[in-house]
Design a protein around this nucleic acid. Structure first.
Lengths: 197, 197, 197, 197
DNA sequence: AATGAATGAGGCTTCATTCAT
DNA sequence: TATGAATGAAGCCTCATTCAT
């Protein structure tokens, strides 16, 4: 019953992914060495041959999450609303394709699991938020959005919509798929109609 | 350690509040009998003189949450957007006055802690969502909002904004107080400007 | 909700009876202050106004048992086998009328609950055994039973039959009522036929 | 504290045996994880590396008991009374060689500890009883025992004698060793003398 | 590297017992 | 006497972590 040995880096990656999957799918309290071992196919004790302790596993999971979330980021489009659309639809698609990973990002579970490392999770969120805000400000400068609206408030609207979509998706058990295009169109119409006379 | 004796009903209330505070403030994994005991000022075992088990404590916490969230609900105004405003500002104020209680509602922590009772938590969220949706539909019927926009998407926008505000509030440690009026005005302008020619 | 005060002696009696009922009916592990209180109709803490501690309650329960078992004891008949019959049928009837009390006597539960006081339980059993043995010896002396049989072995046969009847009665949930007369006749025939040519 | 590591199967066996020893020797209420751990030489929590929970331990103990009791069962002799003798003496010998195991079988402690599994314990007892009854019925058919005697009553006599012997053996602390042959002879004489004219 | 038994620290829950009311 | 909240000691069980094999 000898599981073939894997070079540490590959194993670390496997474990980090499994950790993220467990945290977002089953909850932090199910992130145990045994569960990880089962998911990866090795014994529980073996986990700690690859990671010093559980905190390090969570850190790796967060790093993995960061990698997924910020691949092809920021979007390259010149127009700020196009960049935002690209980001928005990308994230919403992620919700549906990799719900576990995505949910972790908007969940407070991961932050909780991170403990001392919560800051890292926050920085992920803030990085997204800063990007959204930047797009909105630029759009305001270009007159695409009413410049009197508070960029902070607008950012909350955009980020919040993503967040609420994610929760709704989970609550429905993945059944209610809000079409990313429609969601974005709604947002875009709301944003840009403010600029009209 | 002089612990004044308190009648069960009072203790139950205390414990339920403490539970909600702990869940939303420190995380489910910190909702332990010890922590509760410390918070309330009694020994851990004594908790179970007042509650059958931990599940019952969580249920009580949820009931407490429900009570706070749905006091004076639904708002009475005739105009749907006024009703929505009342709800929105009320909730946002709650975020700042009782962050712990409010956060629990939008957190997935409570749901996780609830276990079997998760349905109750969901119903709380859905009740809020249904209210928001109803206001939006009525506003569309009255021509206050572009009727071609999907009510589902709009609901996500409104609820999501509340949600994101709550998270932002906690992330900042309670320092960034988004003015409820400004937030609402932003939303309202976005919603109603879609109806203009 | 003030339960009327009872003179201590009456309460002690009530509690002792309840204790015996609980031990034999539900098992030692169910003999708790709460359960006793419920059975007797007083609060759990109040139990210890009448008894110093649980051990004392068990002692009282045993004393109560002794009282029940040795009422009208020993039987007065002149003939030893008649005395034995009287004892045997009396005990077997007790099994069916007061299963809880009787079972306690042949159960090792009570002995277990008694802890340090186990000796008292043993003495109850030994007293019964000594009586049975005495009857058998006398019957042998009178030629009613083959004198070459070991009185010790015969005693085990008689006592064991009672014991086995009690267990069988409980196992069947009280449904299989071995007729005391038939059981005794069987024993008697077995005993006395040994004396025949 | 050097605790040699042992493969699970061996530990399970050890623990099951220890459990039976504790139940029959010290009482169910002493069957604690700590006590088991002490008996086996490992920490209390480690017990649950080998057994899911306490119920499973009790089940294993019962299975162990069953194995010991029903080895070489039923006896092969053609004559029913010889079969019964073989069974009777075998069990009585067991009382003296492995008092803990044997006592468990006739004790109500095990049944209590078994909880949900009480049925298994009962079936063990009933299997023995059915065997005894069968021997007696055959003996009656062969005219070795008075056919008018109730097989049920006779069964109680035989089983009860074993039971009483076991209790007596424990009460005396293992000192009073009733010779199995003498006990059986007494029973046999009593049974067969009923058939004589 | 891998295994899985062992540990020890908690966390939940029960219960005898105490004691303020 | 009665009440029932409070305590503290177990007992069950889980889990991160260690370590002999």
């Amino acid at each position: 019953m000898s599981t073939p040995r894997r070079p540490t880096e590959e194993r670390r990656q496997q474990i980090a992914e499994a950790a993220l999957r467990i945290i977002s799918g089953k909850g932090v309290h199910r992130l145990t060495a045994q569960e990880l071992g089962r998911e990866v196919g090795i014994a529980d004790g073996t986990i700690f041959r690859h990671f010093k302790d559980k905190a390090e596993i969570v850190r790796a999971a967060i790093a993995h999450l960061e990698g997924v979330l910020f691949t092809n980021f920021p979007p390259a489009a010149e127009d700020p609303l196009e960049r935002l659309q690209s980001f928005f639809e990308g994230r919403l698609t992620l919700v549906q394709r990799m719900p576990s990973v995505f949910l972790a990002a908007f969940s407070d579970r991961l932050e909780e699991a991170a403990g001392e490392e919560a800051g890292v999770v926050r920085s992920i969120i803030e990085r997204s938020q800063a990007f959204v805000r930047q797009c909105l400000v630029e759009a305001q400068e270009r007159g695409q959005i009413d410049p009197r609206l508070s960029p902070e408030a607008l950012t909350l609207v955009v980020i919040g919509t993503l967040q609420a979509s994610a929760f709704a998706h989970r609550r429905s058990g993945g059944k209610s798929k809000m079409d990313p295009r429609i969601a974005w169109q709604t947002i875009e119409i709301m944003l840009t109609s403010t600029a009209r006379k």
